[in-house]
Amino acid sequence: MLLYLPIAELSVNMFIIFGMGGAVGFISGLFGVGGGFLLTPLLIFSGIPPVVAVATVTTQIVASSSSAALSYWRRQLIDMKLAGVLMISGVVGSALGVEVFNVLRRLGQLDLIVSLSYVTFLGLVGGLMLAESVRAIINARRGRPALLRRPGQHTWVHGLPFKMRFKRSRLYVSVIPIGVLGAGIGFLGALLGIGGGFIMVPALIYLLRVPTNMVVGTSLVQILGTMAVATVLHAVGSQSVDVILGILLMVGGVIGAQFGARIGQNMRGDQLRALLALLVLAVAVRFLAGLVTVPTDPYSLAAVGGG
């Protein structure tokens, strides 16, 4: 069934978009990630203008992260103070991200920067995750215990000034790395249409030594807040949030996430991480291919002033 998207100004097959939201929701439930890094590229590759894809996926991330955050909230696995600091810096970052997004759009270089950033960040994060999970799998096979450093251990990060106490996470750290992390992920989120959970979670664990049980819930609240603000900023800045497309993705995503989460509970963590790493790398490779292969048509046409 074809459905006309009023902001994207094109007709799409309703079930394909709904299915895409469902499939990405399934993956996000399975791995405990937002899935924006998959959904935005999928939409772009299926012909939705990148501007609309990035701006609309922010709404889908808000929906999926609030759905997931709710269950962490019930189990009291959220450090609201840490999430609050991350969120404030995240909003600053995403405001900057939306600004850069609009400048790049005017210059006609948005697609390029989005592609380059996807290749860089997904390649880097996917590579690191794959290496880490493969090591963990090998260790588990040989019967060796996982080499995880315990929380409470210190790194250079803990030597920075402006320390702040986070009771729930049993942390006493400088706000500088937290602010930088929040702002950086907010910036990338707004620019690339990703939640950034797949960067945030490892950063909180390895860099700040936040207890693992607090990490996901806290990261979800930060993503929820930052992306909600990014949605509003995109709506004001480029008027490219397509509410119809968003609803299709949200409903599909929320349903898909439930099934993914159920299956994910029966899989081992290191195997899940290895699979996710491969998925992340596959998206990076797809973007890289798009950048370096000879385009089928080097010319492209765009309306001036956004129609």
Binding site: V62, A63, S64, S67, A68, A228, T231, H234, A235
Partner: peptide, 18 residues
Amino acid sequence: YGLICAALAMSIGWLGGV
């Protein structure tokens, strides 16, 4: 419009979670 979209997203997510 942006505020409505954000609120809508949160409600759909919340509803799904419930």
